[in-house]
Amino acid sequence: MNTPEADEPRGTSRPHRSRTRKLLLSILSILLVIAVGCVGFAGYLAHRWNSGTQQLNVTELQSPNAADGPGTNILILGTDTRSEDDPDQAGITGTRSDAIMVAHIAANGSGVQVVSLPRDLWVPIKGHGEDKLNAAMSYGGANLAVSTIHDLIGVRIDHVAIIDFEGFRGLTDALGGVDVPVYKEFTSYGRTFPEGLNHLDGDGALSFVRARYPFADGDFQRIRNQQAFLKAVISKLVSVGTLTNPVKVTRAVDQLSPYLTVDDGLDARGMVSLLTKLRGVEISEFRFMTLPTGDPGTSEDGAEYLTVDEDALSELRTAFTYDTLDRTIQKMD
């Protein structure tokens, strides 16, 4: 008795199977090439990051005096290397931080809260009595800045990143520009920013984050502008148009890294670990606030400063300690 297989003419199925096998092998080969290419590109990008950034051993990050708490806290310091002839730099010596932010990544990865600390806050600085918050970096570099800020907010600092404002120019251009909202027209450094959504190139970004004198509330509006710029950059960085474009990603790293100093825990491997914590965070889950301040004051040498709002600071310290910053920001907003 003949089986169906026996009735099938010889050679009928083999070419079909052969073609299928070849097709599968071709697909697997393509996927393997893509995988190898991705690994190779990741390694290349890691090399560019490690060779481009300056890395520091910040001993204060391991300070036993800093309270432990859930989540990850990253101190972001913005510095400006413009000539001392620039009016915004008058009277400033050493490296002072013009922007001071603490970014908190929630322990469960549900969001990122960024708290700006006004640079003119009058605070205790170890070994230097009381002074403006931004003087800590001038007196003792990243270690003293970290120590001063974790004393202020009451929890440890896990990482520190110091960026020169000049890096914003190349980064913005590498991303094809960024869009920021302007709620009232102003002019700064010869450039006018009309009310509404403004598309900034690199030069425009620099003028935008530096502007202080056009505003009645001076540094507070500059802080809001810096927050808006940071949010716009993050939005552009995580967009599909950037993440799927190796050329754009490489240019962004190349343009930013020479102006970036990080602790040695933020090498390429550390950045991958950090970005893994952020993998599920949407841009809408980034929240920003500025620490409220008390009355202004004047130091013995005539310098004007801002006092700390102790009630607001106490609430902020509790929020950092118990990982409830998201609710606290919504309440203070």
Rank of each mutant, 00 (worst) to 15 (best):
G204N: 05
A205G: 03
L206Y: 06
S207Q: 09
S207Y: 02
F208G: 02
R210F: 08
R210N: 04
A211H: 05
A211D: 06
R212E: 11
Y213I: 03
Y213P: 05
P214E: 08
F215W: 10
F215Y: 11
F215Q: 04
A216T: 15
A216G: 15
D217E: 13
D217T: 06
D219P: 02
Q221I: 09
R222G: 07
I223H: 00
R224S: 12
A228P: 09
A228W: 01
A228H: 11
K231E: 09
K231T: 09
V233L: 12
S235N: 13
S235K: 13
L237A: 09
V238N: 11
T242A: 10
L243R: 13
L243G: 10
L243I: 15
T244I: 00
T244E: 01
T244S: 15
N245H: 07
N245W: 00
N245D: 13
P246K: 13
P246M: 12
V247C: 00
V249E: 00
T250N: 10
R251N: 12
A252R: 04
V253D: 03
Q255E: 14
L256D: 09
P258E: 06
L260A: 08
L260Q: 03
T261K: 06
V262N: 02
V262W: 04
D264E: 09
G265V: 01
D267T: 11
R269F: 14
R269L: 13
G270T: 10
G270D: 03
M271T: 01
V272W: 07
V272Q: 05
L274S: 04
L275E: 14
K277S: 10
K277V: 01
K277C: 01
L278Y: 07
L278D: 07
R279Y: 04
G280M: 01
V281P: 00
V281N: 05
E282S: 15
E282P: 02
I283L: 11
S284L: 01
E285M: 08
E285D: 15
F286E: 06
R287C: 01
F288R: 04
T290L: 03
T290C: 10
T290G: 08
L291C: 05
P292F: 01
T293P: 03
T293A: 09
G294A: 11
G294C: 04
G294F: 04
D295N: 14
P296V: 13
P296T: 14
G297W: 04
G297D: 04
G297T: 02
T298V: 14
S299P: 02
E300S: 15
D301K: 15
G302S: 12
G302Y: 06
E304M: 12
E304G: 15
E304R: 15
Y305W: 11
Y305Q: 10
L306E: 02
T307Y: 03
T307Q: 11
V308Y: 02
V308D: 03
E310Q: 15
E310F: 02
D311R: 01
D311A: 15
D311T: 14
D311I: 12
S314A: 12
L316E: 07
L316Y: 02
R317W: 08
R317L: 00
R317H: 09
R317P: 05
A319F: 05
A319V: 02
A319Y: 06
A319I: 08
F320G: 06
T321S: 14
Y322A: 05
D323Y: 10
T324Y: 04
T324I: 08
L325C: 04
D326Q: 13
T328R: 14
I329D: 07
Q330D: 15
K331P: 02
K331C: 07
K331T: 13
M332E: 13
